[in-house]
Design a protein around this nucleic acid. Sequence first.
DNA 1: AATGAATGAGTTTTCATTCAT
DNA 2: AATGAATGAAAACTCATTCAT
Lengths: 220, 220, 220, 220
Amino acid sequence: MANKTKTVPAERILSTAANLFARKGFSAVGIREISDKAKVNISMISYYFGGKTGILKAIISEYFGHFDEIAIRLAGEKLQPDELIRKFTCGLIELIRSKPDICRVAIIELPIEIPEITNLKVRLLKNNMQLMSKSIAQGFRIDDPRRHLIIGPAFLSMIFSHFLLGSIIKKASKEKFDSEFFQRYCETISELFLNGIKGMSKSVTNGKSTGINQKAPKRK
Amino acid sequence: MANKTKTVPAERILSTAANLFARKGFSAVGIREISDKAKVNISMISYYFGGKTGILKAIISEYFGHFDEIAIRLAGEKLQPDELIRKFTCGLIELIRSKPDICRVAIIELPIEIPEITNLKVRLLKNNMQLMSKSIAQGFRIDDPRRHLIIGPAFLSMIFSHFLLGSIIKKASKEKFDSEFFQRYCETISELFLNGIKGMSKSVTNGKSTGINQKAPKRK
Amino acid sequence: MANKTKTVPAERILSTAANLFARKGFSAVGIREISDKAKVNISMISYYFGGKTGILKAIISEYFGHFDEIAIRLAGEKLQPDELIRKFTCGLIELIRSKPDICRVAIIELPIEIPEITNLKVRLLKNNMQLMSKSIAQGFRIDDPRRHLIIGPAFLSMIFSHFLLGSIIKKASKEKFDSEFFQRYCETISELFLNGIKGMSKSVTNGKSTGINQKAPKRK
Amino acid sequence: MANKTKTVPAERILSTAANLFARKGFSAVGIREISDKAKVNISMISYYFGGKTGILKAIISEYFGHFDEIAIRLAGEKLQPDELIRKFTCGLIELIRSKPDICRVAIIELPIEIPEITNLKVRLLKNNMQLMSKSIAQGFRIDDPRRHLIIGPAFLSMIFSHFLLGSIIKKASKEKFDSEFFQRYCETISELFLNGIKGMSKSVTNGKSTGINQKAPKRK
DNA sequence: AATGAATGAGTTTTCATTCAT
DNA sequence: AATGAATGAAAACTCATTCAT
């Protein structure tokens, strides 16, 4: 568990803290525990991050930075709607796999009130939601625009579902979570969401409606 | 914020604690804060619940109790698969609306390591997942059974998505979350999931199997 | 040095803290040192006084309380101006002798910026200065009223001079500071001040002017 | 507040520290705060002054140096007793006005126990008191020589009174402390003390002794 | 001459719990 | 059944100083 492979103290603090926060939650972790595990003097935490919340700020900022980068990159690739959603899904899943602690912490602490951090979160989330909404809205025109605020979070929640519940699911089942699993995970979530949203949208791919269920009469 | 309307100390402690845990996370709340807001002597917490974790246990147990009750009740109603999913979705949303703090705490703290509580959570979750899986599997035969462990949590995550992110979304958007919103929420989530899963299942609705990505039968 | 004779924790904390503050200054004393010397658990300080500054607040309030009580009592005795000044001087000196630590702390910390306490000090000092000014102005009409703000503090400073410098004077001389010394101290300070102020006032003693600048027209 | 006009680091440290010590007290100021405000690297403090107490030593030494210089200079001017006291008073007040922080720190910290510094203070104070006593005793023969140890500090306390209480008085009154005020301050304190001491001394002015409480000769 | 990263002992305050009443 | 004083451990953070550069 002790973390001394990385030689830079600030990085060791960040990754160690992220791991502990991910497992126990931000408030349950003390800086002493972090500094011990990171093999760093306890003062270094205030020195580098200005305090415990400073670490959390760094973690959350990093997560949103990665997220937005993915969203922007894909937006530049001019993909078909289906492909965009699929790549977005897989991109996020890859992100979570490559930085599981960072992502879990950012997501888990998102809805939790930490006064010092609320502003940061709201600011980052606003920008983030706009990017994501654009990705979805670009390809799938939803009848009722008020559904955007439901579909967006639902999409994200699906993607994150395994990572949020993973640790406890791991204990409740005997499934192995290897690369093959995540391949399947990407596909399943993409498919679930694409089928789901196509059923309720006027798809705009190629400018003509192509939704699978498009024969379907719209909901009254 | 102070809570003195309920006259029974144990109830005041539970509801006050649930509210605080829901907002700040379990570890960030002190028993002094709980006892102050609940207008209860601080010793009463140890007295009634055997300590702070005792309150959390009670909250989590209550949540799972309600959840299972819904699952069991619906299972007894012999509903069509579509209707089952819809009712299950709406039942859970109603539950969350009627006991928002209890539910948020149980869900938020679910993936967090609290040694004293992990066993309880694993035990309750196992039972819970079986009930839910049965509900889904009953109507939609998924090609690959390993997808169960993905679809189940994804379904739940979608349902809970708003409640997890709600508080922060509230700050990042100006949508009003009233009864009308939740009506829309139930429908949207149900539809999203039903479309999604039908697209990938050999639906047994109407007794005939249909493949993944089939041109899905339209909703009536 | 250890203080266990008084049985009430709050009192032990207060007197021990006053002693330490008096010698080392407020900021130089840690609550650990206080709690050790007072034979009290360290948490009791926050428990009883709400923190270290709480002790200081209590000390300062006690000092001003005693001070004002003396001023008010003497004001009620309808004394001759000379007698009033003399009794006021001796009253304060007795106060300082009976509660040397309390008084030293209050006086020494008075001009020091402690944000949390500034308001308290200003409020208490305002009231205090009015009481004292009345005592002086009652008997000695000063030509220039703007001198009040000089004479008042000068008077107090003279009275406190020994107690402020005492500890260091003790080290720099071999005088013994016994009851006889303080008797002399009272008389000397009173005389010094009375002579001083009479020389610059239109004295109203006995209705006949006796001041140095007695060419001044007498009061009725 | 930041101090970068003076270009020499050691000077910037000293003046910045003096200002902070004067306002908050020695112990309440950290070297980080000093180095930040002085725009100096934190290590420079240990480098130039050998530590935080080194700064205080420098400040106290500077104050006593100035004080003694005044006392010695005036002693060489062969002044009349009255004039000596007046010039001494005004000299000190000018000193305090020109170096308010240095003087306040030296005076405020004087009675406070700082082991490392006590010896320095006692040594400087002894010399200082002798010089001052000589100034007073030279012109006014006090009946009881034991009164010297009372009158000396009382005299100093009067002079310093405004500077000790000034900052808090500023908050408690609306008087403006400009040059005119300090002119008045010099005169008032001199007069108060001269009248005071003449009343109790066998004045040697003009070579003839006069008793206590004599109808004092008026000023010039 | 000057820097700033790093240290470890120090600070105050808050924690959950217990116990005598 | 209920209180609140008391505890000791642990919390986050700041301290003055040192050292390699």
